[in-house]
């Protein structure tokens, strides 16, 4: 796919999302306020009631910074979630239109998902400007301009990985009448095992070792730790490479599912 076509699709999708401005702002403000209220209340209570200075290697301000940052980066990464986009194309028969295009369907969908994250990027930046100054100084996290710059490619590869992960459950729509539940399941699993709900250092040691061998931590925890300055340059490069390798593997796994499903597709919708 040519870069100009890719960016054209990105812009079209971003414009479409921005057309519902009230929705855009309501979602952003409520989500930010609720997240901050819960984060503060929960972790202050845990630190106060446990009497500990450090939990899972984090002090109170550090874990709050993690919570805010994982929320902000997570919004962008989850922008790769197709939700029902592919399934709807299959159910409505709209996929036929894409099959006639001289471009691969997943690439068009990926361009559209990148378009989806542009408003999220803007929102996250705005929220970061509001929330980060509210955070106290932590001894366990150090947000710097360099760490934030390093976080950008980490977030982009995480977004790609999430997109590819959500592709196969969507292809199940060739066989199943409704795959919404599969997308939601994927979200639950990735949120918990990817570190979006809690830092993975809080998990028991044996589970942490297991999670190290799975792709989930590259979705949420890795970009967040990069933004918080907890990842050195070598580990960062390794992390990006692992994330791309996982993306390649999961992308390859989705190909046979697409081919099989494509054979079943009748184009009349259901």
């Amino acid at each position: 796919m040519s870069p100009s076509l890719f960016f054209h699709l990105v812009l079209v999708e971003a414009k479409k999302l921005m057309s519902y401005r009230v929705d855009f702002w309501i979602t952003m403000v409520v989500a930010l306020v609720v997240n901050l209220v819960i984060l503060w209340a929960l972790w202050e209570a845990i630190f106060a009631e446990s009497g500990k200075e450090l939990i899972g290697g984090w002090d109170l301000n550090g874990i709050l910074a993690y919570g805010v940052m994982v929320f902000l980066t997570g919004r962008i990464v989850r922008g790769g979630d197709l939700q029902m986009s592919v399934a709807t194309d299959i159910y409505d028969g709209a996929l036929s239109r894409y099959l006639l295009y001289p471009r691969h369907y997943p690439f068009i969908k990926y361009a559209q998902q990148v378009g989806n994250i542009l408003p999220d990027l803007f929102q996250s930046l705005m929220m970061g400007l509001v929330a980060i100054p509210l955070l106290g100084i932590s001894t366990t996290a150090d947000v710097t301009p360099i760490s934030l710059l390093m976080a950008i490619p980490s977030i982009l590869v995480a977004h790609l990985l999430f997109f590819l992960m959500s592709l196969t459950p969507q292809y199940i729509a060739f066989w199943a009448d409704n795959v919404w539940s599969l997308s939601v399941m994927l979200r639950f699993v990735t949120m918990l095992l990817g570190g979006a709900m809690l830092p993975l250092t809080l998990f028991p040691e044996s589970i942490q070792v297991g999670l190290h061998w799975l792709p989930f931590s590259y979705l949420f925890e890795f970009p967040t730790l990069v933004a918080l300055g907890k990842i050195d340059l070598v580990t960062w490069l390794e992390g990006i490479c692992y994330c791309l390798l996982w993306s390649l593997l999961i992308g390859l796994l989705s190909i046979p599912v697409w081919r099989r499903g494509d054979l079943r597709y009748t184009g009349v919708g259901i």
Partner: peptide
């Protein structure tokens, strides 16, 4: 699918609090 999805939600909620209580009483 929907039954499994909801069960997964239950498991995630229970695991979340179980992990928190590993660090506080």
């Amino acid at each position: 699918f929907r039954i499994v999805m909801d069960c997964m939600f239950y498991v995630v909620e229970l695991i979340f609090f179980t992990i928190l209580y590993q660090h506080t009483d």
